[in-house]
């Protein structure tokens, strides 16, 4: 838990300290498909079974409820 908190705090600090504006012409790397801040479409099935087999869900930009999760 300690490492996880440290990571989240580090990322949060990055947001606070960020003051650079990256221009459109300089976003070649940012626009790379793998730089997207979301899961791949195929990954939805993994997220689905994780929601069933684990108690935690959410905070990943996806589904947060619905379904019995009973199997």
């Amino acid at each position: 838990m300690r490492y996880c908190k440290a990571l989240l705090l580090s990322i949060s600090l990055c947001f606070v300290t960020s003051c650079t504006v990256v221009k459109e012409y300089n976003k070649i790397a940012i626009n790379d498909e793998d730089m997207k801040l979301q899961s791949a479409l195929c990954e939805r099935f993994e997220t689905n079974f994780q929601i069933y087999r684990e108690a935690a869900a959410g905070a990943n930009g996806g589904k947060t409820g619905g379904g019995c999760g009973c199997n």
Partner: peptide
């Protein structure tokens, strides 16, 4: 019946020409 209500917020930021991140928080009531 089983009802679920959720509100999700996210903030994403380009931090560098090669680095970007996002924060997510949800509040879910069932």
């Amino acid at each position: 019946h089983r009802n679920s209500y959720s509100i999700s917020m996210s903030l994403s930021q380009i931090l560098h020409p090669k680095l970007q991140g996002a924060l997510f928080v949800d509040l879910v009531k069932q």
